[in-house]
Amino acid sequence: MQFRHQKVSVTAPARLHMGFIDLSGSLGRHFGSIGVALNEQATRLTVAGADRRLISGPSSARAEKCLATLCKALEVPDTLEIHIESAIPEHVGLGSGTQMSLAIGAALNAFYDLGLSVRDIAKVMVRGLRSGIGIGVFEQGGLVVDGGRGEHTVTPPLLARMAIPEAWRFILVFDKRGQGLHGLQEIQAFQELPPFPRREAEQLCYLLLMQALPAIAENDIVRFGEVITRLQRSVGEHFAAVQGGIYTSPEVAAAMEWLAEQGAVAVGQTSWGPTGFCMVNGAGRAEALVELARRKFAASDTLVFIGASARNSGGLVVVE
């Protein structure tokens, strides 16, 4: 096969997973989730033709596996040079695996002119088994809601996509020591979870549709934050038995409690953590609160605080 382009560059944004809606499928569909794309955390890579396969940069081992799977399934040569400029940290709740898979898949798609959609690539890489947030943010960015899994679902359908107001900012809290559940541990954890109450799933559906999404449309960060905090508490309590509490990291839990006391909203943990997140209105307010948090928790050598903004566009593919 001959390739038509010399180089393809891809940017795949990290995502916050803000929670599931129905973990037991008591209403006929399993999971369903809400999340948002981020600007400051992303996987960025370039793919170019080469005489042999060469992969460099962070998360090279993961990229190697993705490339092997994709090239075999798509029947294209793997004699490529891939340079990873930056990679989303692995297993901290920011969607690193899905974004690496989609980034390399999108690069191959453009490089070899395969005519694939993002969901075609996700299907090959077996992504979207539970959440479709990573797929949705690569497709369109912004805040996305997926419809979970039903009887005929291949990848969770995108139900809603909304732009996050420009002034809204996130504060992320990382625990440098640990990783969230992933792989076989994650599968086992889902199997061990008790049934999710049907009435709770119904309540979360209502709050999401009739309060959280209208709050984005009306630029009401407080009301949006109330719903996300409520959803996070519900899901966190459900996961507590398998992750050791509402938060995976006790240190992150303490930091999130303090941030809420300072007026932050939408307080929770993304995916299995250990990363926590919250929101404030205004870039200046976010910067000031990040600095206060760093001083407050300076004695801890485990926590890292950074500010972030929502990315209201999807993955970027540039062909040269």
Rank of each mutant, 00 (worst) to 15 (best):
M1W: 00
Q2P: 14
Q2I: 10
F3A: 14
Q6N: 14
K7D: 07
S9Q: 15
V10R: 08
P13G: 09
R15D: 03
G19A: 09
D22F: 06
L23D: 07
F31V: 01
F31K: 04
F31H: 06
S33I: 00
N39G: 02
N39T: 14
L45Q: 02
V47I: 15
G49M: 05
R53C: 13
P58N: 00
S59K: 02
S60M: 13
A63E: 08
E64I: 01
E64V: 00
E64F: 07
K65V: 04
L67C: 10
L67E: 06
L74I: 08
E75W: 00
T79H: 12
E81G: 07
I82F: 09
H83K: 13
I88L: 08
I88S: 10
E90H: 07
H91C: 03
H91N: 14
G93N: 01
T98K: 09
Q99N: 05
L102P: 05
N109Y: 02
Y112V: 02
L114M: 07
S117Q: 11
V118Q: 06
R119S: 11
R119W: 01
A122P: 04
G132C: 03
I133V: 15
V137H: 09
V137P: 02
G141D: 03
G141P: 06
G148E: 00
R149Y: 03
G150N: 02
R169D: 01
F170Q: 05
G178H: 11
G183M: 12
Q185Y: 11
Q185K: 15
E186N: 09
F190G: 00
E192W: 06
R198T: 15
R199M: 12
R199N: 14
A201C: 04
L204V: 10
Q211M: 12
A212F: 10
A212S: 11
E218V: 04
N219D: 14
N219C: 11
I221M: 11
F224I: 06
G225R: 00
E226G: 02
I228K: 00
T229I: 09
Q232P: 03
R233W: 11
S234V: 14
E237V: 03
A241D: 13
A241T: 14
V242N: 09
Q243K: 12
I246V: 15
Y247M: 07
S249I: 08
P250S: 01
A253G: 09
A253P: 01
A255Q: 05
W258T: 09
L259T: 03
E261A: 14
E261C: 04
G263W: 01
G268K: 05
G268V: 07
G273L: 02
T275A: 13
G276Q: 05
M279T: 02
M279Y: 05
A283H: 12
G284A: 12
A288M: 13
V290K: 09
A293W: 04
R294W: 03
K296Q: 15
F297H: 12
S300K: 04
S300V: 04
S300T: 14
D301G: 15
D301A: 14
T302Q: 13
I306L: 10
A310D: 07
S313Y: 10
S313V: 13
S313C: 11
S313K: 12
G315W: 05
G315H: 02
V318I: 14
V318P: 00
V319E: 10
